[in-house]
């Protein structure tokens, strides 16, 4: 038997503030994920990643697939990121070729800018970068300072 319930007048105010904090926490975590992949646009797959990685957000796992259509989109994006990383590595000593690579033209101008910037930043550390994949993270840290 369902009994009718009422809410105190303070609840809309309280839930409003809780929602603000929730939105901003989830958004900031999604942004950190996007930034880790050298993107400056927050996408649904970034939000989905945060939800899967954070225990307190587990209650949201059921609504993510509907929102993303299907997870192959998510997988495709991951694969795309890997491809970009590979190209970046291969083209370290072929800057001119890199700039003229037709694959890069398919990316947005903004993404291309990020990739070029990253490429320039890594040039002085060529030997270290080629030998140690962890240096990629180190360089990210350097750039962030």
């Amino acid at each position: 038997m369902f009994t009718k319930q009422m809410i105190s007048s303070e609840i809309p105010m309280l839930m409003s503030k809780a929602c603000e904090i929730f939105i901003q926490e989830l958004t900031f975590r999604a942004w950190m994920h996007a930034e880790k992949n050298n993107k400056s646009i927050v996408q649904p797959c970034d939000v989905a990643k945060v939800i899967m990685q954070t225990d307190t957000m587990n209650f949201l796992t059921e609504i993510i697939p509907n929102n993303l259509g299907d997870f192959s989109v998510f997988d495709a994006k991951e694969e795309n990121i890997a491809n970009i990383a590979e190209e970046n590595e291969v083209s370290l000593s072929f800057t001119a070729g890199f700039m003229g690579n037709p694959m890069m033209k398919m990316d947005s101008e903004e993404n291309a800018g990020n990739i070029v910037e990253g490429n320039q930043a890594t040039l002085p550390y060529t030997s270290g970068f080629m030998g140690n994949p962890m240096n990629m993270m180190n360089m990210d840290n350097v750039r962030m300072k």
Binding site: T27, Q43, N67
Partner: peptide, 30 residues
């Protein structure tokens, strides 16, 4: 609200905003 927490160079896709709408409504129900 999403823009307020991010740096100025950050952008948010329309789809990400829609995803957030779903998430926050689910949060309220939860």
């Amino acid at each position: 609200l999403m823009k307020r927490i991010l740096p100025q160079n950050a952008k948010i896709s329309k789809e990400a905003k829609e995803t957030m709408q779903e998430c926050v409504s689910e949060f309220i129900s939860f």
